[in-house]
Amino acid sequence: MRVRIGTAGWSIPSIHAAAFPAEGTHLERYAARFDAVEINSSFYRPHRVTTYRRWAASVRDDFRFAVKIPRRISHELRLVDCGDTLDRFVAEASGLGDKLGVLLLQLPPSLAFDAKVLSAFLALCRTTTQVPIACEPRHPSWFTGAADRLLADRRVARVAADPAPAKGAGEPGGWPGLVYLRLHGSPVMYRSAYGEAELDRHAALLRCHGGWCIFDNTAAMAATGDALDLQARLASPERRAGPVV
């Protein structure tokens, strides 16, 4: 039932600097306040294993990283014939050691659910790593009972995304052992901050199920403020009541 709250990347906007220690690297300061972060840069380019080791050494023992699987695998090869690329990525990210908490697989909106392709890819993943996987599909065909059952059988969580790209995408699915919220900002993706009603709704879900909540509305520096606000809501006794809606 543990809740982990963080942002995509560990930038600290000046408007929120007072909430963090004044000394240390950006990651060290960030990790003094939050216990999770999502590494999105791995989607675009590889990082050396020594870089991952340095990041792991910069944070406390209970801090965890989510690392985004490269777009070469998800968007270019579309989960097919990607064994060598996957092996390299996992070997690099393993530099995080026990602080590697989740692998994030974000799929392109054009990639429809294909049980054969998904089964083969997830089997390949499990020959390489046992790290939990959170999948963020965006094609409507993924939000069906068949896709959900296959993900659950393979112990893969389906991301709850906001804004939801299809009906059902805003709720967690797949394997219930991991809940992973990715909040991209609404009404303007990547830019808008969340209002009180939205944050209350997400807080209620996390109280009931635990899990990760990552704010990806970083373009206008809204993510850090939202993460701090949600953190405060979950810590406040007077806000512990209320249904999940």
Score class of each variant (00 low, 15 high):
R2L: 10
R2C: 04
G6H: 03
G6D: 00
A8C: 04
I12A: 12
I12G: 03
S14N: 14
A17R: 14
A18C: 00
P21Y: 05
A22M: 05
E28V: 05
A31P: 08
A32I: 12
A32C: 09
D35I: 03
V37K: 00
V37S: 01
E38H: 02
I39K: 11
S41H: 07
F43T: 08
F43Y: 15
Y44S: 08
R45W: 06
P46N: 10
H47L: 07
H47C: 02
V49D: 07
Y52I: 10
Y52T: 02
R54K: 10
W55K: 05
A57H: 12
R60G: 11
R60I: 08
D62Q: 14
F63S: 02
F65K: 04
A66M: 10
V67Y: 08
P70W: 02
R71W: 15
R72Y: 01
I73P: 04
S74W: 11
L77I: 14
R78C: 09
L79V: 12
L79N: 08
V80E: 13
E92A: 15
G95I: 03
G97D: 05
G101C: 06
G101S: 10
V102P: 00
V102A: 06
V102I: 15
L103C: 02
L107S: 00
L107M: 06
L107A: 00
L107I: 04
P108S: 12
S110F: 00
S110L: 03
L111C: 04
F113Q: 01
A115R: 01
K116F: 12
L122I: 02
A123K: 08
L124Y: 04
R126T: 13
T127E: 14
T128N: 09
T129L: 04
T129R: 00
T129D: 05
V131L: 04
P132T: 02
P132R: 06
I133C: 03
A134C: 11
C135N: 11
E136M: 04
E136P: 08
P137K: 12
H139I: 08
P140R: 15
P140I: 15
F143A: 02
G145T: 14
G145I: 12
D148P: 03
R149E: 06
R149P: 03
L151T: 10
L151S: 02
A152V: 15
R154V: 04
R154S: 12
R155V: 09
R155A: 14
A157P: 05
V159W: 01
A160E: 02
A161Y: 01
A164E: 08
A166E: 07
G168N: 08
E171V: 10
G174T: 10
G174F: 01
W175Q: 07
W175M: 07
P176V: 06
Y180A: 13
L181Y: 06
R182Y: 02
R182F: 03
L183N: 05
P187H: 12
M189T: 14
Y190S: 11
S192V: 05
G195S: 07
A197W: 06
D200H: 07
R201A: 13
A203W: 01
A204K: 10
L206F: 01
G210M: 09
C213F: 01
D216G: 08
D216F: 04
N217R: 11
T218Q: 11
T218N: 08
A219D: 00
A220F: 14
A223C: 02
A223R: 02
D226K: 10
L228E: 04
D229L: 05
L230I: 01
L230W: 00
R233Q: 13
P237Y: 05
E238N: 10
E238V: 15
R240T: 12
R240N: 11
V245E: 06
